[in-house]
């Protein structure tokens, strides 16, 4: 579908006279401001009342066949995959569930300032593929970026609400450590050296998020009692949401269904 964006269309008019340099639309490195979190109380989990949210993401209909990625442009990438590697855009598990869906509490939590965990999240470039393909991190948490490949990569964080950046990473170079200070669900990491490479990261204000795995299930622990809107986001199939109530020390379940 063509993107009908009249503002940008008329913005092209100065370009016709090559005067575009004079106009100053926002460059992609601009960040949106987030509400100051310093005044918020520190988020705490009361183990005596904390509950869990668990569930599955189902896929109905015929599972799409993902294309085999052609890595012939870089033999060092190709050699690392003895069998053809398929794109991970839509991964339907054998039990008809969907992998790589980001699940988070979208609404209903008492506003709080959650301290980032000491544990770093990791994003590896291995076999010219990002691993993991989808993950969630907390605002301010360290993201450690590795290049386990014998080839150069560029790592491009295509954020909208955090400063976007693009940096090179040489083969087995020093790890990069990055933080994201604004909530953002979800944005891609890409590599233009190997244009098939794509990973997704959701930056959350709170620790109540999960990503579905090889059985399509997810589990979020330590959830304060309350009524919440839970959102599931898939990179291609979009977002769905549902409401649930977590009783004190209770276990709430929810299922999301994608597909036809």
């Amino acid at each position: 579908m063509p993107e009908w964006n009249l503002k940008r269309f008329f913005g092209v008019a100065p370009l016709l006279l090559l005067a575009a340099c004079g106009s100053s639309p926002q460059p992609s490195t601009q960040t949106s401001s987030s509400a100051p979190a310093a005044n918020l109380p520190e988020g705490k989990v009361d183990p005596a009342t904390a509950g869990t949210i668990s569930g599955k993401v189902l896929f109905q209909g015929e599972a799409p066949v993902m294309p085999v990625i052609d890595m012939s442009s870089n033999p060092n990438c190709e050699r690392q995959h003895p069998t053809p590697f398929r794109a991970e855009t839509v991964v339907v598990n054998p039990n008809k569930t969907l992998r790589n869906v980001y699940i988070h509490i979208k609404d209903g939590l008492t506003p709080a300032r959650w301290a980032p965990p000491a544990q770093t999240a990791k994003l590896d470039q291995n076999g010219c593929v990002y691993a993991p393909h989808m993950q969630g991190i907390l605002e301010g948490q360290d993201l450690e970026i590795l290049n386990s490949d014998p080839v150069n990569h560029n790592v491009h964080a295509e954020c909208q609400k955090n400063p976007a950046w693009n940096e090179s990473q040489a083969p087995r170079a020093e790890h990069k450590f990055k933080k994201f200070s604004n909530e953002e669900t979800i944005f891609p990491f890409t590599c233009s050296v190997h244009p098939w490479m794509r990973a997704w990261i959701g930056v959350s204000k709170h620790p109540f998020f999960a990503v579905t795995g090889p059985d399509g299930s997810f589990r979020i622990e330590g959830v304060p009692p309350g009524t919440y809107t839970v959102e599931a986001i898939h990179e291609k199939l979009g977002a769905k949401e549902g409401k649930l109530t977590v009783a004190p020390s209770g276990a709430a379940t929810i299922e999301f269904t994608y597909g036809s």
Binding site: S73, N74, N152, N154, S168, S192, P195
Partner: peptide, 22 residues
């Protein structure tokens, strides 16, 4: 491949980077 070389005017800090992929 527009962002495959993140730096400018040098490329990966060199005049001649490895010519792989993008």
């Amino acid at each position: 491949a527009g962002l495959s070389v993140p730096d400018w005017p040098l490329s990966y800090g060199k005049l001649m980077p490895p010519m792989e992929g993008g």
